[in-house]
Amino acid sequence: MSYVPTVAPGTGSRAPHRILARESKAAMAFVERNFYLTKRYWGWEVAFLVYTAASSLSIMFIGASQDGDTNRLILFLAIGTLVWGYLNSVFMNVAETVAWERWEGTIEYTMMAPVSRVTHMFGMSLFAIIYGLIRSTVLFLVLAAFFPEISLSEANLTGAALVIAAGSFSFIGFGIVGAVLPLLFPEKGEQMTLMM
């Protein structure tokens, strides 16, 4: 028997900077785990991305079929679908926090870990934002391949960042409400998970 655990958990320090360090490590645990999951479910990711790209493109082709100078309209639609796609994915990721873990059966282990619920939600939101941004970038590149005329050279990047940040906050808020709803019925959740 050669394995000897190296870290004894002992009593956790209550000094604020220690708590912060501990909780941010835990928040990163959620981010890392979700990236692993995304990697393992890459088939679904691709399918979902193709679907979103197709619907975005169809909206833009409708725009392109209009009379007159359509460039502005197409750009407008592209940004609209991108922002919507981004916010939608942020919302879904956060809202599924609890439902997903319940489905996997890991929820009890996450809940009994020494991690505050705030940290849990923070970690999930952080992942949702990073994931959403990556996904939107890929989507933008796909759209740009079909419509070379859309260009970000004149874009108001600060304005865009502000819109995205404000949107992220409110959608994360909705997401958390969605995620917490099943928790209002904890004992029912118990029934669903482990009736042994």
Partner: peptide, 11 residues
């Protein structure tokens, strides 16, 4: 991957 996640929750 599972154990990295669960261990990190414990710091």
């Amino acid at each position: 991957e599972n154990l990295l996640y669960s261990s990190r929750l414990y710091g």
